[in-house]
């Protein structure tokens, strides 16, 4: 077993940690949505990495090709990407709505207004 066998998975974990930290620690709502996207893409990369077969080609049937990568993760992630964009759109619409109601997209400003008034 080589050292680089799990390199893809480790990079996925690094991306995931970056995204999760942003979602938890940043007060800016748009920044949180971007962090959520980074997290999401890291999960996609995890699935696609698992579907790869070394020496395989893209799963499109052709003459003289015997080894294909696994098509199932590709299908699942195709669905997940589109759903992810739909949820991102909904989140950004919420951000716009919050900005209209509070005049700010910073979490602590909004909390201050909620508690202060």
């Amino acid at each position: 077993m080589g050292i680089l066998d799990h390199f893809n998975y480790w990079m996925v974990i690094v991306l995931m940690m970056a995204g999760l930290y942003t979602v938890i620690s940043r007060g800016n709502l748009i920044k949180q949505v971007v962090g959520l996207n980074v997290f999401q893409v890291s999960v996609f990369v995890l699935y696609i990495s698992m579907g790869k077969v070394s020496g395989g080609t893209a799963p499109i049937l052709g003459e003289g090709i015997t080894v294909y990568s696994n098509p199932l993760p590709h299908v699942l992630i195709l669905t997940a990407i589109v759903v992810g964009v739909a949820t991102t759109a909904l989140a950004l619409a919420l951000v716009v709505r919050i900005r209209k109601a509070y005049g700010s997209i910073e979490e602590d400003d909004i909390l201050k207004q909620e508690n202060g008034s």
């Binding site: 996207n37 893409v41 996609f44 696609i48 990495s49 579907g51 790869k52 077969v53 395989g56 080609t57 893209a58 799963p59 499109i60 294909y68 990568s69 993760p73 590709h74 992630i77 195709l78 990407i81 589109v82 992810g84 964009v85 991102t88």
Partner: peptide
């Protein structure tokens, strides 16, 4: 990683529409 369909979608939807 051989996932050409996913790459199309990510480039159009993830990089474009997002």
């Amino acid at each position: 990683l051989d996932a050409v369909d996913v790459a199309f979608t990510e480039a159009a939807v993830g990089a474009g529409i997002s």
